[in-house]
Design a protein around this nucleic acid. Structure first.
Lengths: 190, 190
DNA sequence: TGTACATCAGTGAACGCGCGTTCACTGATGTAC
DNA sequence: TGTACATCAGTGAACGCGCGTTCACTGATGTAC
């Protein structure tokens, strides 16, 4: 656990503590009062930095999505192009999900709803768009735009579904199995 | 809405009303008190039929899983064998999920946790096992047992992931797109 | 340099909410003799 | 046939909980003159 908040940027401290809480949970349930308690601060203090709880959760989800995006981008650059790189990035997605279950759930639960109240309603959509286009960019060159979109959605669905099945306890996490299952998607051959 | 409960089997009425509530929600949040209110019955009355809220939710999840299983089995028998049947069953899974978002979420959220308190803790595991083996049975004959398991997991992950992305509002529901994406998994060719 | 004032991040008390669960109870139904 | 009794599905009141949010407030910090 972090040290309780003393002085400084409470907004940053709240996000940090929130991320830490999420890192130690399976479910993304996060209470504003509980978080304030962790910070050693009154619940109302948080209202100086977030208009309401939703905004706090949105900020956490956005931060999480950015981390995921960075992680994926890094994996993509390290793995190089071609099929090997593509498969590696897919495995990386599942691994990250397994390591950040509550955060992944929070991300996907927050993006769906339209949040016109948030100061930057498009931020998360933007971040997701990057994630998606990152996937699409790894498709074989000879594909048409439509084919790329479908193939990207296929790949995203596969790794996301596999991750969710593992997070929900349907499938035990086995890196070798993940690798094997991900590599069964191969757009070159077919 | 159903008519409020008058007399008869309250347990059955509660399950029915619960299923109806879930059918009209996006999220699987279901309160014991709220359900009792819908039934026109005191909250405590439900304790005559369920030991606690968890048992109620488990019963609903089990019922939902059975419905899903029946739906999948029916689709499998109608679609016939071979690749066409396999792909059709996959599309059916996604369609059912889109039509029963809260119920699907409830199912997957309940199965994970070990519920030793429940009178039949293995019931859901059993039902899921059937779902899984139903998928595995559709794999090409020439596959080894290991290959079948991996291929079944791949197929399950794909449709489940696609369904979740749609339920979470990441991807708009487009039957033609679903069909296209599902059919990109083809274990014959590769 | 000192004083008046605005700003603003924090506080604690309070509101109202819905929840799961417990408790002692009532009243109808069925059964034994 | 009538009476005593057990069973059991329901009731309403109450407990304690944690939550998100509001309100009027305090006290430190910085700035203008």
């Amino acid at each position: 656990m972090n040290a309780p908040y003393h002085h400084g940027d409470l907004r940053a401290a709240a996000l940090e503590m929130g991320m830490e809480r999420l890192a130690n949970q399976e479910q993304p349930d996060l209470g504003l009062r509980a978080l304030a308690r962790d910070l050693g601060v009154s619940a109302t203090a948080l209202y100086r930095h977030f208009p309401n709880k939703d905004a706090l959760l949105d900020a956490l989800a956005l931060e999480g999505l950015n981390r995921l995006g960075r992680h994926q981008a890094e994996a993509a650059s390290q793995a190089g192009g071609g099929y090997e790189g593509f498969a590696e990035v897919g495995v990386t997605y599942v691994t990250w999900a397994v390591e950040n279950p509550a955060l992944l759930r929070l991300i996907y639960s927050r993006v769906g709803q339209v949040d016109l109240a948030t100061d930057d309603p498009t931020a998360m959509g933007e971040a997701f768009h990057q994630l998606r286009s990152g996937i699409a960019a790894m498709m074989p060159d000879e594909m048409s735009t439509d084919e790329r979109a479908a193939a990207a959605l296929h790949a995203w669905s596969l790794v996301h579904g596999l991750a969710m099945l593992i997070l929900d306890g349907q499938v035990s996490y086995d890196p070798a199995m993940v690798r094997k299952v991900v590599r069964m998607t191969d757009f070159r051959a077919c």
